[in-house]
Amino acid sequence: MFEAQMAQAALLKQIIESIRELITEATFEVSGTGMMLQAMDSSHVSLVALNLRSDGFQLFRADRPFSMGMNLNHMAKMLKCAGKDDTLTMRADEANDLVTFLFESPGNERLAEFELKLMDITSENLGIPDAEYSATVSMPSAEFQRIVKDLGSIGDTVEITVTKDDVRFAASGDIGNATIKCRQLLDTEKPEDRTLIEMVEPVNLTFALRYLINFSKATSLAPSVTIKLSTEMPVVVEYKLSDIGYVRFYLAPKIED
């Protein structure tokens, strides 16, 4: 038996909306520690890792580890039917291949029950080592989204360079070139407006912009985004979900052959 209750159905809806273009099918692994999902996009260039800790839920019960394979577009269809302030309760048991989403209005006057068919998904699970990164940049998530969208209109790839003074995003294409340089900014009223650059050694890496633009669909989930980089390693783009966990996106770099 699995049962979990979230104060805001809208949170899970937003999470699924932010990843469903990248991965259409995925398996949620449920255990006493929470709900986790890891999946590669169909071209195996990027990877999404979602972690929702059990203590971030209002109620969480998982008698034993349980896998729930879901089509995320179908899940999104159902989650769209939740009212904006509805609570969400998820229920599933191993006896039937269904997960139930219960949407309850704040005054308890409306209770909607949606049952989604579960599916068997065979996918490779990758072990992601806890690595030290050469550079870690935290910046407002809206600023990161603006940068990747703006550069996406110039070129297909972005060259990210981190030095101790700044982080540069550069793109070039048929119409010309663009460079956006962000300096460290610590003296802000709100901590989420900061741009923080932690550099062990300078890095310079190139990535496909369309994936980064896709990752930035998670902007509404967190005011700030953390980008971790090491030479010839996948970049990590992390959105922290307050009090419950994170969504991390990994993207393999482009490397000269």
């Binding site: 590669m40 990877l47 490779e124 699970n125 072990g127 496909a208 482009k254 490397i255």
Partner: peptide, 14 residues
């Protein structure tokens, strides 16, 4: 820049 690497070349399959 040319080659797009696959993510699975960096992280081993569990």
């Amino acid at each position: 820049v040319s080659g797009q690497r696959s993510i699975s070349t960096f992280f081993a399959t569990k």
